Amino acid sequence: MVVPQGSLGTWNWKSIVGNMFPLLIVLSAIVLWAGITLESAEEMIEEIAILAVMVPTMVDMGGNLGAILSSRLSTRFHLGTTELDPRDRELWADIAAVLALAVTIFTALAIGAGLLDTVLFGGTVGFPSLLFISLVSGMSVAVIAIIFSFAATYGSYRMGIDPDDTTIPIVTNVVDVFGMVIFIGVSAHVLGF
């Protein structure tokens, strides 16, 4: 494997700040879009209160899944054990693990939301709808997290920027935005808004 020239593997606070400050400005603008999307769905969330309970977990877990994969990929790049070859069985095992974790997490979210909906709100939505919303949104977010984990890690590495500095902010912010948009869209479709 060829290691690009640059500061990869060294720690220099000036290069980290120089790389991260513009990136964080762009990511802040992107996350603003998620807030605007949530604001536009205010009526639906007020009417179906259980969705307000699900939003933070949905968005947070999607970002966590991306962070897990990004960390694994960054470590493998640092160790020189990957080149992102599609025949690499370990890469496919990492993807399968993230998807299996996503199914587990988002099923648990639907179960918890269903229980809360029944206890607190009298079962306004129903478990099948909550399960569908949670799994479709969650698995979509997991796929987006996988794509952006690979893109951010590989792109950072090729540009000579330490992926440990860039991947998690990129992946978590992008997944937050897409997670919010997908969750609101799927919820509106299923619940008829």
Rank of each mutant, 00 (worst) to 15 (best):
V2R: 10
V2M: 05
V3N: 13
V3E: 14
Q5S: 13
Q5P: 11
G6C: 06
S7L: 06
L8F: 15
G9I: 07
T10K: 13
W11V: 15
W13I: 14
K14F: 03
I16V: 15
V17Q: 05
G18S: 10
N19M: 03
L23C: 01
L23I: 07
L23W: 01
L24I: 07
L24G: 01
V26T: 09
A29Q: 06
A29V: 15
I30K: 04
I30W: 06
L32T: 09
W33H: 11
W33P: 00
W33N: 05
A34K: 03
G35H: 10
I36T: 01
I36Q: 00
L38G: 02
L38T: 05
S40H: 06
S40Q: 14
A41S: 12
A41Q: 02
M44S: 08
I45R: 04
E47M: 03
A49D: 09
A49P: 03
A49R: 15
I50K: 12
I50A: 11
I50C: 12
L51P: 07
A52P: 01
M54Y: 09
P56H: 09
P56Q: 11
T57Y: 14
T57V: 14
D60A: 12
D60N: 05
M61T: 12
G62F: 02
G62N: 11
G62A: 05
G63Y: 03
N64I: 13
N64H: 08
N64Y: 02
L65G: 13
G66T: 07
G66R: 06
A67N: 10
I68D: 07
L69E: 10
L69R: 10
L69G: 02
S70P: 08
S70A: 15
S70H: 05
S71C: 10
L73C: 13
T75M: 11
F77D: 00
H78T: 09
G80H: 07
T81G: 12
T81E: 15
L84F: 15
P86M: 07
R87H: 05
R87N: 14
R87G: 12
D88A: 11
R89W: 02
E90N: 15
W92E: 03
W92N: 03
W92G: 02
W92F: 03
A93S: 14
I95N: 06
A96L: 15
A96Q: 02
A97K: 03
V98P: 06
A102V: 05
V103R: 00
I105G: 00
I105P: 01
I105M: 11
F106W: 04
A108S: 11
A108D: 02
L109T: 12
A110N: 02
G112K: 04
A113S: 14
A113H: 10
